[in-house]
Amino acid sequence: MTTIPAPPVAVIAAPSGLARLLQLVPWFVVAGLPLVLPGYEPLAMQVFVMILFALSLDLLVGYAGIVTLGHAGLFGMGAYTAGILSVHGVTDPIVTALAAMVVAALTGLVFGAAMLRTKGLTLLMLTMAAAFLLYEIANKATGLTGGEDGLQGVSFTPVLGLFAFDFRGKTAFFYSLVALFLVFTFVRILINSPFGWSLRGIRENDARMVAIGCPILQRRVVAYVISAALAGLAGALQAQTTQFVALHSLSFELSGNILIMLILGGSGRLYGAFVGVPAFMFAQDLLAKQDPANWFLGQGIILIAMVMLAPGGMLGIAERAMAAIKRRLS
């Protein structure tokens, strides 16, 4: 048989031990921040929680190609689970976080199994309707959730019985940083697994995946449930670190914002959330203080410009710049 003689194929190799160690450096740098910038812990832990939330969304939007406008529904389920448990006397942070993950995962399973048979506008509408439904339920079930006033009296016992949540937010800072690190590691393993690759396949060409024997509904539901559990964890962390749960945690606004944050950084790139979330929250802090109109205007213009001129978000821009530099040099 006549085949063109092939040069040796570059084997996609796992990073070496040293490279792995180097990847840990940024985490230690961030962990050391409170020493340099005391007083920023509360803002930083908000950023960590949102990065974690955006990572959960990236699994869907960036890898599985499922566009959702209702991801806050799952975040809020986690937040309310942790909050309501704490009000009723279950106050261990880790136990409530796990419970929040389970409740969010079950919510994701029920809604996901139903919704993910559809696609396009219908799927988009279903994700919205599901989140609006949860929002309205929380809004009306005032006895359980506090309704519009939010859930008051949320408090948690020390983490592992050792580290109490303090006013300066030190414990919350490290607690959410550790959680983020664990989730990041998990997501990184996941996207490199055969399962993660099959999600990319579904994103690229779902009809072809069916024609290689892939049960795509099942695969997408699993992705949705995992993403839901992580979003629920982010919600629980939010409840634990702020000791409050507001209706906002289920809102369309939050669903939209987290999508914008992810896209701003660059979806399907694992690190997009780490870039987009801090950029968004920093800009929000800066602009929204003066006048919300400025913030909306800036956000809107950036979104339009990004879609028209720079798909791939900030990381996409960086990738193109690197490629251009490489071409120059070679």
Partner: peptide, 24 residues
């Protein structure tokens, strides 16, 4: 010809700009 996601983001951007302008 763009992806659904791009269209969603673009139109959200348009909404935000209009909300801001009307408010101003």
């Amino acid at each position: 010809g763009r992806s659904e996601l791009d269209q969603v983001l673009f139109s959200i951007g348009l909404v935000l700009v209009s909300v801001a302008i009307v408010r101003i």
